[in-house]
Every structure is written in C-alpha cells, then in structure tokens.
Design a protein around this nucleic acid. Structure first.
Lengths: 324, 324
DNA sequence: CTGAAAGCGCTTACAG
DNA sequence: CTGAAAGCGCTTACAG
C-alpha cells in the first residue's frame, strides 16, 4: 500500500542502507547513485514514516506544549510564536491542556513516558510544577513561559514586569498625576509583585487594591473607592481586563478618562484597542515569548547548553487615549 | 534505560505476547497471570512507546489540526473544543498552521505522508482546499470547520448563518428600526452571502456596503454615509470587529447608540462585552463547532460512517446595550 | 490460556 | 562507496 524505503531501494537497485544515507545525507554516497535514488524517491512520492524513523532513532522530532487554557486572550499569540518556530525547524507540535485536573495531568504524563515528544514548552503551570520538575529530572527537556515567579530548575522565559510597572508610573508622573490607584492581580503571582514594586518605586501610593485579573474586580474597586469618597487621579490595573472594568465603572460614575482620571493597563490584548477610550497599556511581547521559548527548547534538543538564568524579554508602553 | 515490554515480560515471567494482551485486554488471559503482569507494570512504571505501538498497529492515535492562524479572536474557543474532545478520547493533537504559503503546505503534506496522524480537522482552508481534497481521496479522513460556503467531499461543521442574519433583522425590526445599514464581509464567503440573505429576507434594505471583516471598513462605511447625508437607524455588521469600528465612528460623529442608531454584530468574540456600549451580536458556537468536528472525526476513525450533509450548529442572538 | 516468530519501516554499527 | 544484519519496541497471525 504505502511506499516504503524498501520499495525505493528495489526500484533504484540499491540497499535500504544506501537510500537511508541519501535521505539523511549521512556518509559518503556516489554522486550518480544518490541522484538515481533521489529520482526514484520523487517519482514514487516516498516520504519516510515518522513513526518508524522515531522508533529507530529514539526521538520523535516533535515537541509538546502544555497550556492551562487556550482561550486566554494572549494565548493565541504565544501559541503562534511557538508553532511558527517549531514548524520552521521541521518539528511537529503536540498540544496538551491541563484543565481537567488530575485526570489531564495523568494523561499527559503517560504521553511523556510514551516518548510521544522530545521536549516540552510549558505555559504557567498552575499546580503541576512539582510534577514537571520530576519529569525534568527524569530527562525531559523543558522550557517554561511563566510570570508567576516560580524558580524552576529548568530554563524559562519571562518579561520585565518590574520595569513595565515602572514605565507605567513614569508615564503617569510625566502627565502630572500624583495620586494613583493600583489594582493588582493575585498577590501570590511573581509578576504581580514585580509590577507593583516597579510602579511604587517611581510613584509611591497607599492606594493599592488587591484584585484577581477579572473585569469585575476593576469595576468594584473603582465603585467602592468613589462611594467612600477617596480621591485619585489615575489607575494602574495589572491587566487589561481589569482596566476594562475600571473604564466602565468610571464612565458609569461620570468621571472622564483621561480628563479626570488616566488609566493604564497591562498586557495589550487585542481588546485594548477597542475599549472607550482605547487603552494605554504595558505591552507584553507574547508572541516573542513563544518564539523564544521554542527556540531555546530546540537548541537544547540540538545539544546546546541551556542558560541557567531566566531569559527576560522587554515590555513596552503603548500609549493610547486613556492616558495620553 | 527506558522500561520496555521485554522488561515487563521478563520480570513477570511471561512472554511479550501475554503482556501485550493484558495491556490491550485482547484475547483470553488467565486471571492470576494478568494480575501479576499488571502488578509488574505498575511497579516498573511501564508505559508503551507510542511510536512503537503506532508502527506496529499502523496508526498513531493522533489527530492533526490545520488552522490558518492562531490569533484570530475566536480561534481559541475552536481549538479548546477540539483539544478537549481529542484528549478525552485519549488521542494526541498535532497542530499545524498554513500561514507561510506554499512552504507550510508542503511541510504539512509531508507530515501527512509520514503518517504522523490518523485524521485531520481543518479550519477555513484558504486556498488549500484542492490539496486537501487530494489528500482525502488518498485516504486521509478529514472534517472541515468552515463558513465560507465550500462544498467539500468530506464532512463539515457549519453554523446557521442565514438564520443568524434573520435573527438580527427580527430583533431590529421588533425594536422599530426600519432603515438598516448592512456592512458585509468579503462577498465570496458563503457565510457572508448567507448572513446577508437571511437579514434582507426579514428586513429588506438597499443600504448594503461591502466590507472585509476589519475594523477600519466599519469605520469608513459609517463616516462616508454620514458625510453624504444618507440616513439609517441601525447597523448590522457581519462581524464584531467591524461593529467595533462602527461604534467608534458613530461616537465620533456624535450619534448615540442605541438612541439614534442600534448596532448588531456577528461572532460574539470576547471583545463584544467590552465595547461601548457592549455589543448586541449573533453568537457563533465556536467551541461547540470544535467539539463537534473532533467528535465526527474520531467516530469516523472508529469506523462509523460519516454524514454526507454538513452538520449545522445554531447561532444565538446575544442582546446587549448596543441594540436592546 | 500461552509463546515463538515474523513483521511494522526505519537507522546504524560493522564489515567489506 | 556499499550492503547484510541487527535492532528500535511493539502487535499479530499461527501453532500449540
């Protein structure tokens, strides 16, 4: 049925060994022999079976990617970055999610043991880090894309959260804002601590409300502060979704943005362009993070030593109307 | 190094055949023998090599997914639906994109020939349909998620675009709107023709502007009509991005929404909740489309006959403030 | 109920 | 420069 290396060998009048050698350009092969083999390959439309190659070579030329969710607003960019890089290197990408708790983790582990892939890119492991560490110790190359301040044993890609927070503060300060409200994300996330520390290092404030990265937390924080008569002239929200809630609450309360209150978010998800007014925000280089992580993993698989410190990619302040 | 079936066999004092039988619960095996084998498997942490199993069985227990882009706003939901379904069936998902033109297509085809996966879910193939048809004729099971009005030889999952357009029109008519503007997507897309036909079957109009699914086209259409003094009391945009542009242009022109003009979009992407005002829109069941397509493919792989007509999933009007 | 052997489609020492 | 043979880790008739 399908064309195998044996068919090519027979047709070309050589051994399978020789065919294998011209496919992989390994070892010396006579020029005219090689040409003949290549011709037969083209003519028969032969493509080596990835399964057989993998079995014989002990590697699958496939990388795995484990993500907590595929519907987070910035996940598409990360994925695209990883896929592009992996495809360009002629690797396949096997995608896994771990949103069904223990069951998914177990299934995933079993794929690891099955050697279905050679290495793994992980995005923000929630409570699987111990597990991943065990797999890594067992020999699985892993690269992490993470902002939660984990300090894993394996290489990771992060972004400049501290500087990102600082850049938001500098921008507000330059606009003459002196009394900012900060609405954070979950405080056990490293990125949240860093964004906050960076911000207050430039623009100290005692108005810090603990949020949880949802729209509702932004809305509630603003409503409550306004209701209790607390004054502020700007808001730094730790992500764009929260900032969207802030904008909505301010509008409902009759405060103008940026006239009365300037608002800065974090992430620069697609929505940020479309809020009213469009949101000034600290852009995370999500696609680049995906590309970088994939590149690190591939070079690791290729034998290059991995960096021992996390690779840090720069954020960038994107100025729109909510804080000109 | 790694634990193989031979290790298990030796440790349990049986043949590899027997181990294979208990793993796959195939053929009769003595109860106590089976128990012993299972014990050894657990104790050694044995997991069959997916590559070897695939080679021996001639199938990979993996499905492929080919998408044009991973960063489209609704792609995350589709992907999640596919991944969840595929994982639940203990299959792996191999992800491919075709955004680098001929090169990606070629790479992808070679993976097909390499038998890297058993079946394929395709989302909106741009100009690869002929190619896919060839692969399908060559024996590759394919399920399409598509709204462009292709009529492929293989099963597909679509949504009720005609009824979706009609539901938007009924909603506007019920609100007393009589002079709607329709801004379409690319007119060679089947979904665009259907949405338009559905809409005008309920609420005829001569105000139809051809758009291209971008924000700018929505903005320009509104600006130009207003500049030329054409009156309208509502807008039906063929996707939410375009509707966002419409909202922005109306606001800039000092028209109130929905007071002066009601606006309805299509898709219900995450952004739709966050526009000003929040967007009334026709929701596409994107996640469900992913789940359904994956389920169809899996049951096809399982030997079930595939339906010959496209499977149609219902849209749903989501009412928010832009058209209450 | 169980096992020896062939086979899946490759790669890779080894020998020439 | 080339090939016969063993091996990668499984499954599956076939025979008992």
């Amino acid at each position: 049925m399908r064309v195998t290396i044996a068919d090519v060998a027979r047709e070309a009048g050589v051994s399978k060994t020789t065919v294998s050698r011209v496919i992989n350009t390994k070892g010396e092969v006579d020029g005219s022999t090689a040409a003949r083999v290549r011709e037969v390959i083209a003519q028969l439309g032969y493509v080596p079976s990835s399964g057989a190659v993998g079995l014989a070579r002990g590697s699958s030329r496939t990388v795995g990617m484990l993500v907590p969710s595929l519907t987070w607003p910035w996940m598409g960019e990360v994925l695209q970055g990883v896929v592009d890089t992996v495809e360009a290197a002629d690797y396949g990408l096997l995608l896994f999610t771990c949103n069904r708790g223990a069951e998914s983790v177990e299934r995933f582990t079993s794929q690891v043991s099955a050697r279905a892939f050679d290495g793994l890119v992980v995005v923000e492991p929630e409570n699987t880090l111990d597990h991943l560490t065990a797999l890594h110790r067992g020999g699985l190359p892993i690269v992490l894309i993470d902002d939660r301040g984990h300090h894993p044993e394996f290489p990771s890609v992060v972004t400049t959260n501290h500087e990102g927070g600082a850049s938001a503060a500098r921008h507000l300060r330059a606009a003459g804002r002196t009394r900012p409200l900060v609405i954070t994300g979950p405080q056990d996330f490293g990125c949240v601590r860093d964004r906050l520390a960076g911000f207050v290092s430039v623009l100290p404030t005692d108005l810090v409300v603990r949020g949880d990265f949802t729209e509702i937390c932004g809305r509630l924080a603003v409503e409550q502060l306004i209701a209790s008569g607390v004054e502020f002239d700007s808001v730094f929200a730790h992500n764009d979704i929260t900032a969207a809630g802030v904008l909505r609450a301010l509008r409902a309360a009759g405060r103008s943005v940026p006239g009365d209150i300037a608002v800065v978010g974090f992430d620069d998800i697609p929505m940020a362009e479309h809020t009213e007014p469009p949101l000034t925000t600290v852009r995370q280089p999500t696609r680049q993070m995906g590309e970088t992580a994939a590149r690190m993993l591939l070079s690791h698989l290729g034998g290059t030593a991995v960096p021992d410190a996390p690779l840090v990619l720069p954020t960038e302040l994107v100025v729109r109307h909510s804080a000109p």
